[in-house]
Design a protein around this nucleic acid. Structure first.
Lengths: 347, 347
DNA sequence: AATTTGAATGTAAACATTTACATTTTAGCG
DNA sequence: CGCTAAAATGTAAATGTTTACATTCAAATT
């Protein structure tokens, strides 16, 4: 028989596990078990408890649970800049598997501010977060080094990495992706191929630039290597695009950009200078964001499996949290999507 | 004198407030006060406590604090889709003032899934969140109605709203913004002006469409009204753009779009049909996202003060949380940015 | 010197869970 | 029927804070 009297003293207080216990005629321990480990509770009791829960409208107080269990079921996704649409689908992939496993995602936007990154790292020591997926290398190395020293600091990287700190990582092979892009441009007959890189200190850019140089060398074009530096954004693409295209040195006939936004900036620069793409200039982007199908001309670009990267990164982190010894590195495959911004030279 | 012995039994356990108290030679209550209300503690003690904190490396356990204070210092920002760059700067503005006040932001991506929205609302009743900033009207109305009934449910809306539920709101005047855009197009000599609206059931779109119709009427152009419906994304802009431009009915000479992405989609459609913008077709966007300066032609669009919207929304929410009776509505001003996608008809 | 005041501090309860351990109940078996 | 083992449940401690209330102490007032 269910106790149908609501017996809490303050009429409008939030029901606790005690109220459920009273209504179900059992102890709080049993209620707790009915929720956490239903198989340890008899069928009859479990049914009574569930009815009681519905009856009093109970939902567990998470702060109390977190305190007692010393966990937060929260994962921090640390990224340099939310406004970059590149990240949104990665986050989406992370959320899928995180929610599945009962975890929440806290998006940490560092905005290139070391203090913010530090604040987010601190969440781990205060039990406000259980792990971190690091999507940027633009944070104080000291933080990461310290974390790496701790035996099992649940930290994984995705897309980006550090050249000198070996952390669990989910990413594409940036060197190879770059080689593929340059190879393709060479196959179209281009000889003066420039790269519009992201920040020079960024390891993924270094990888891509290495691929660039290696491929040029493989085709005896090393003397033509030319790397400009941007910051992944539209504006830097435009500015560096202008610089590359209007210099006195012989103008490049192709530009490989480390992001789609920069590529679109280059398109604008070319337009302004009356250089037609792809007839007089080929442009390759990176990431295959939504925009790349809708700019003019549609962008040839390298596609990363963003959703899968997010999923796998979260998977990897969950393994770490369970104390399992997982694969530390996973390389996913990128591929070149040929659209309309590349071609053989004409006129 | 500070007690320099570390006296905790488990050598690697996280230091608690007790450890600090022991090291500072006072009670835990005093330590707590030294942190929360320093003015209630003598200078000497405060100094000792601070030294002790540094010495043992203490940082408070937030779960315990949340439990005791029955708060989480977390605000949920509920939005329909993270991948829309329109939201990122709003979030950014929210974060600025939230962090200032010691709050965190949890980004809740609903992905148009009612269950997700519900889950985020539930965070409030379980003390996992203290308030919600609602940036979408695409969630179950029942949720909102119920929230609205509760005396002081800390919920504010930004940008979007419900026509039949009166919640605290920070937004621009969508009707007026729309009038301004249409007026401008009329002033350029356009008569057949179409609108590419967002979802028809969306109140902000309804406002904009009302402005559209009112302005046409003011110019005796009502018979020319034509509204297509998209979903704010590139693809729908492209598809609806094609539909509007290649129909048998006389083709519109201007299209007012409810988002920049749709406007860029329309640009692509026009390009494909050989319609030149702005000579044969004018296009106006909405939101002034980064892209709008880099597409071809650069987009004439309506700019919303996104950062300020975020700041004010959070400000408003903080007022509610403090139990103050704040202004319930705040209208911020938008403005038309004229670029290259609009002009008088030529040829 | 006795009394009052206010500031500074301490004591211990409260927050809502989980879980180790103890106890009771049930089932199985000879 | 008695005994044992296993299953189900209960008791109470523990998690790390905050804070109401009590106490102490020093300064100010009479």
């Amino acid at each position: 028989m269910l106790n149908t009297q609501v017996t809490s003293k303050q009429p409008h207080s939030v029901p606790t596990i005690k109220d459920v216990a009273k209504a179900a005629g059992c102890s709080t321990a049993t209620v707790s078990r009915a929720l956490a480990t239903p198989e340890k509770v008899s069928d009859a009791t479990r049914k009574r408890v569930n009815q009681a829960i519905a009856q009093v409208g109970y939902s567990p107080n998470i702060a109390a649970r977190n305190l007692r269990r010393a966990e937060s079921k929260t994962i921090v996704a640390l990224l340099p800049d939310i406004s970059n649409p590149f990240f949104s689908e990665i986050i989406s992939g992370m959320e899928d598997v995180a929610h599945q496993a009962g975890y929440q995602i806290l998006i940490g936007d560092c905005e290139h501010d070391p203090a913010r990154a530090e604040a987010y790292f601190r969440l781990l020591s205060t039990n406000q977060a259980d792990g971190i997926v690091l999507l940027t290398s633009e944070i104080p190395r000291a933080l990461v080094k310290q974390a790496d020293k701790q035996a099992d600091f649940p930290l994984v990287m995705a897309c980006e990495f550090f050249s000198d700190i070996d952390l669990p990582l989910i990413a594409i092979d940036n060197h190879q992706a770059s080689c593929q892009a340059i190879d393709y441009l060479v196959s179209l007959g281009h000889q003066r191929i420039a790269t519009l890189s992201g920040p020079a200190h960024n390891p993924i850019c270094q990888e891509r630039n290495r691929g660039y140089r290696d491929t040029l060398a493989a085709h005896q074009l090393s003397s033509e290597a030319r790397i400009a530096e941007g910051n992944f954004g539209f504006r830097s693409g435009y500015q560096q695009g202008l610089a590359l295209l209007e210099g006195k040195t012989p103008r490049p006939t192709a530009i490989f950009c480390h992001s789609d936004e920069m590529a679109v900036g280059v398109l604008k620069a070319a337009r302004q200078l009356g250089i037609s793409v792809p007839d007089q200039l080929s442009v390759v982007g990176f990431d295959n964001i939504g925009l790349s199908e809708y700019c003019d001309p549609e962008l040839t670009t390298i596609s990363q499996p963003r959703n899968e990267i997010g999923q796998q990164a979260m998977q990897l982190l969950l393994h770490l949290l369970r104390g399992e010894q997982p694969i530390r590195h996973q390389t996913l495959s990128s591929h070149l999507i040929v659209r309309k911004s590349t071609g053989r030279l004409k006129g």
